[in-house]
Simulated scan of single mutants.
Amino acid sequence: MKRIVITEFMAETALDDFESGYSILYDPALANDRPRLLQAVHDTDALIVRNKTVVDQELLNAAPKLKVVGRLGVGLDNFDLIACQKRKVQVKAATGANAHAVAEYVIGAVLTLQRNVVFAKHLMLSGNWPRESLSMGNEIQKTTMGFIGFGNIAKTVAEKARALGMKTIAYDPYLAPNDEGWQTTRRCKLNEVFREADALSLHVPLTDETRHMVNEEKLDLMKTNAVLINTARGGVVDEGALVRKLKDLSLTGAALDVFENEPLTYGNASIFDDCPNLILTPHIAGVTVQSNLRVSKMTVKQVKQALEF
């Protein structure tokens, strides 16, 4: 009987797809209990994780039978991919399964930020009637949506943005010049995207190349009426630089779903105190009831295929 260890939350109904022949340990608390995790994987054939479980050499050493790791999502910065490759442990990401969830989050954030209504409820409940100031919001039709990174999720966002009347531009040096995505989205240099975008959405992994890619210098290039959305990885943005731009009103707004240090705590969240027109969410852009089921079922299918091959 093949053993599967699941260390983070998923749609439990998808586990029914394993049927007989599998022994399942579903314990989302394992991601936060490293000693117990290392004990739990000693005889496992497969591991299913999200972004908190670090799959490194230590874990691989503790799991000599491990054949495949299913990733409930797409980011792989919690993996030592070289170590996995050397051990011939397959890594299976749920590519595309949460694209529509992220895309809807991004579009929703752009609409909210450009109308500058994040704190309208609090103003009104305190006795204010901010009709004049909130009447200065912007429409998004005929504006430009920019992307840093133009993979599957970014293309899905772009499709929805164009449906709302936006133009789309992108920077992605790794996407082939003949990729079909460039038929409807203009390919630009990095600084061009920063300068031209009315809404800028980030879709790159966290690497040495992309860490603090969005820094003071790049933010200085952006329009004062632009908004920034980060659903990629927190380290891509210099959070201190972004806060300064928001506070001095040289950027209209931002939505951050990911952070340099996760989870945010009272201590490391204080940087965002009194920051205007800022949406903060706990890494949930790609997680909805529907996407969680799609991601979970895709991951189970990929793990089964790897074990049965």
Score class of each variant (00 low, 15 high):
Met1Asp: 08
Lys2Met: 09
Arg3Lys: 15
Ile6Ala: 04
Glu8Met: 01
Glu8Gln: 06
Phe9Gly: 09
Glu12Thr: 04
Thr13Lys: 13
Ala14Asn: 03
Asp17Arg: 02
Glu19Thr: 00
Ile24Gly: 07
Ile24Met: 10
Ile24Asn: 01
Leu25Arg: 08
Ala29Cys: 06
Ala29His: 10
Leu30Trp: 05
Asn32Met: 10
Asn32Pro: 02
Pro35Ala: 11
Gln39Thr: 14
Val41Thr: 06
Asp43Ile: 01
Ala46Glu: 01
Arg50Tyr: 01
Arg50Asp: 00
Arg50His: 08
Thr53Gly: 02
Thr53Leu: 00
Thr53Ser: 01
Val55Cys: 08
Asp56Trp: 00
Gln57Ser: 15
Leu59Arg: 00
Leu60Thr: 04
Ala62Val: 05
Ala62Tyr: 08
Leu72Pro: 04
Gly73Tyr: 01
Val74Ile: 13
Val74Asn: 09
Leu76Phe: 09
Asp77Asn: 06
Phe79Asn: 04
Asp80Cys: 01
Ala83Ser: 12
Cys84Tyr: 03
Gln85His: 14
Lys88Gln: 15
Val89Ile: 10
Val89Arg: 06
Ala99Met: 04
Ala101Val: 05
Ala103Leu: 07
Ala103Ser: 13
Glu104Asp: 14
Ala109Asp: 11
Leu111Phe: 14
Leu113Thr: 06
Gln114Asn: 15
Asn116Ile: 13
Val117Arg: 02
Ala120Trp: 01
Lys121Ser: 15
His122Tyr: 14
His122Phe: 07
Leu125Thr: 13
Ser126Asp: 14
Gly127Trp: 00
Trp129Lys: 07
Ser133Phe: 13
Ser135Ile: 00
Met136Cys: 13
Gly137Phe: 12
Gly146Asn: 05
Phe150Ile: 05
Gly151Arg: 11
Lys155Thr: 07
Lys155Trp: 08
Val157Phe: 07
Ala161Trp: 10
Arg162Gly: 11
Arg162Asn: 11
Gly165Ala: 12
Lys167Val: 11
Thr168Ile: 05
Ala170Met: 12
Tyr171Ile: 07
Asp172Gln: 06
Tyr174Arg: 09
Tyr174Ile: 03
Leu175Glu: 09
Ala176Gly: 11
Pro177Gly: 06
Asn178Ile: 03
Gly181Ile: 05
Gln183Arg: 14
Thr185Met: 12
Arg186Pro: 06
Arg186Asp: 15
Arg187Val: 07
Asn191Val: 07
Glu192Lys: 04
Glu192Leu: 01
Val193Asp: 13
Arg195Trp: 05
Glu196Thr: 07
Ala197Ser: 15
Ser201Gln: 03
His203Pro: 10
Pro205Asn: 09
Leu206Arg: 04
Thr210Gly: 03
Leu219Asp: 08
Leu219Arg: 02
Leu221Ser: 07
Met222Ser: 11
Met222Gly: 08
Met222Pro: 10
Lys223Gly: 10
Lys223Arg: 12
Ala226Cys: 12
Thr231Pro: 05
Thr231Met: 04
Gly240Phe: 03
Gly240Met: 06
Ala241Asn: 08
Arg244Leu: 12
Arg244Pro: 05
Leu249Asn: 15
Ser250Thr: 15
Ser250Arg: 14
Thr252Val: 11
Ala254Thr: 06
Leu256Met: 12
Phe259His: 02
Leu264Val: 01
Thr265Ala: 00
Thr265Tyr: 03
Gly267Leu: 12
Asn268Thr: 03
Ala269Gln: 09
Ile271Tyr: 00
Asp273Ala: 13
Asn277Met: 06
Leu280Asn: 03
Pro282Glu: 11
Ala285Pro: 02
Val287Leu: 09
Val289Tyr: 09
Ser291Pro: 10
Leu293Met: 04
Leu293Pro: 00
Ser296Cys: 07
Met298Gly: 01
Ala306Ser: 14
Leu307Met: 05
